[in-house]
Deep mutational scan, measured.
Amino acid sequence: TTKIQIRLADGSRLIQRFNSTHRILDVRNFIVQSRPEFAALDFILVTSFPNKELTDESLTLLEADILNTVLLQQ
């Protein structure tokens, strides 16, 4: 498993454990389930350093190389 910290656009944080085989789409779905107010918003996930937009949501967390990292919601 891996721990992902997500810094949300409103300044708050979410921390969740995922399997390395989960997909970026699963992280997006977790955000929307945790904070339904973001469901209607068009947002992207970005790595904190170096900044990289995670546009291919079909990638696993392992394939995207974002295990144990911080993601930013923009």
Rank of each mutant, 00 (worst) to 15 (best):
R17T: 14
V27T: 04
D42I: 00
S20I: 13
Q33C: 04
L45S: 02
D26Q: 06
R28T: 01
Q74G: 06
D65R: 09
E37C: 07
T47A: 10
Q73C: 10
R17Y: 08
G11E: 04
R7P: 02
L45W: 00
L25W: 11
N68K: 00
L67C: 15
D42Q: 02
F43T: 03
P36F: 05
E37I: 05
K52M: 05
T1L: 05
E57H: 04
V70L: 08
L8C: 00
D65Q: 08
T69K: 10
L14Y: 07
L25V: 15
E53T: 10
Q16L: 04
V32Y: 06
I4T: 03
A39I: 11
L54W: 06
V32M: 08
E57G: 00
S34R: 10
S58Q: 00
A64E: 01
I66D: 06
I4V: 09
I31H: 04
T1P: 01
Q16I: 01
R28Y: 00
F18W: 05
F30C: 01
F18E: 11
G11I: 07
F18D: 01
A40T: 14
T21W: 07
L14T: 12
F49K: 13
I44H: 13
L45P: 06
Q73E: 04
T1A: 01
G11Q: 07
F49Y: 13
E53G: 03
R13S: 11
D10A: 02
L8Y: 08
E63N: 09
L8H: 08
N51K: 14
L61C: 04
R13V: 14
N29V: 01
R28A: 00
K3Y: 14
R13D: 07
F43C: 06
L14K: 03
Q73P: 00
E53V: 15
R17I: 11
L25G: 10
Q5V: 12
R35M: 00
F18Q: 01
T21I: 04
L45H: 08
L59S: 01
Q16S: 12
R17N: 14
V27D: 07
E63V: 02
E63W: 01
S12E: 06
T21H: 13
V46W: 09
H22T: 12
L14W: 09
A40N: 11
L14R: 05
H22W: 12
F18N: 08
D42H: 04
I24W: 02
S48A: 15
T55G: 10
T47W: 10
Q16H: 14
I44T: 11
I44M: 06
A64P: 03
Q16V: 05
I4F: 10
K52R: 15
V70G: 15
F43G: 00
R17F: 07
L45V: 09
A40Y: 14
I24C: 00
V70S: 13
P36V: 06
F30W: 07
F49P: 12
T47P: 05
K52F: 06
Q74I: 15
D10R: 05
S58C: 13
Q33G: 01
S58E: 10
A64C: 15
Q73W: 03
N68S: 10
E57Y: 06
V32H: 02
Q16W: 01
E53I: 09
T1D: 13
R23H: 02
I44C: 11
P50D: 15
E63Q: 12
A9T: 15
I24M: 00
Q33I: 08
A40K: 12
H22P: 02
E63H: 11
R28E: 06
R35I: 03
L25Y: 13
D26M: 01
R13E: 14
S58P: 01
L25M: 14
L71A: 04
F18S: 00
N51M: 13
G11W: 07
E37G: 04
I44L: 04
V46M: 12
A9W: 11
S12G: 01
I44K: 12
I31F: 06
Q33L: 01
F38Q: 10
R28M: 01
S20F: 08
R28C: 02
E53Q: 12
D65L: 10
A39D: 00
L72Y: 15
S58V: 00
D56W: 05
L25Q: 13
I66V: 15
L54R: 03
F30K: 03
A40Q: 11
S20Q: 11
S12H: 02
D42W: 04
V46H: 08
N68M: 04
L45T: 07
R13W: 14
K3R: 11
D10W: 04
I15Y: 13
T60L: 01
L61S: 03
L61M: 05
L61K: 03
L59K: 09
D26E: 03
Q74L: 01
L59P: 05
I15R: 03
I24S: 01
F30R: 01
L67V: 11
T60S: 09
F18M: 05
L62A: 15
F38H: 07
